[in-house]
């Protein structure tokens, strides 16, 4: 007899696969989108350090790269912490879809 769908679920809702959170793309939650302005970036990596979702990508050379919009929830911590260059922020928040 074939099992019903709910009978195939792992007991006690245990996730038996490591690192499966990568499959859960949380970028869809975002209403505010961080925008990286490269000319104002001093490569301090504060954004990378503060991001709670590891959504700031880093190049092979250890340089700041583009945001990973698949996971960025748009919390804005990076924009708040960004020291910018001479008073000009390297990260600004923009309304999503504009």
């Amino acid at each position: 007899m074939s099992k019903k769908y709910w009978e195939t679920l792992p007991q006690g809702s245990v996730v038996l696969e490591a690192g499966s959170s990568a499959k859960f793309k949380t970028g869809g939650w975002r209403s505010m989108r961080p925008k990286w302005i490269e000319e104002n970036c001093i490569q301090c990596m504060f954004c990378w350090m503060y991001c709670p979702d590891m959504s700031v990508k880093v190049t092979a050379e250890g340089k700041r790269a583009e945001f990973d919009y698949d996971y960025c929830k748009g919390c804005g911590i990076c924009a708040l912490e960004c020291p910018g260059k001479k008073g000009n922020k390297a990260i600004v928040m923009e309304e999503e879809g504009k």
């Binding site: 769908y5 709910w6 009978e7 679920l9 006690g12 809702s13 245990v14 996730v15 038996l16 696969e17 490591a18 499966s20």
Partner: peptide, 24 residues
């Protein structure tokens, strides 16, 4: 050697099925 997670977030897609399994 077999890493796993306890206590995941399960929303409208599967919560009802988990409760059905718990009833069973």
């Amino acid at each position: 050697d077999n890493p796993k997670s306890y206590g995941p977030l399960i929303l409208t897609d599967l919560y009802h099925e988990y409760k059905r399994a718990q009833h069973e």
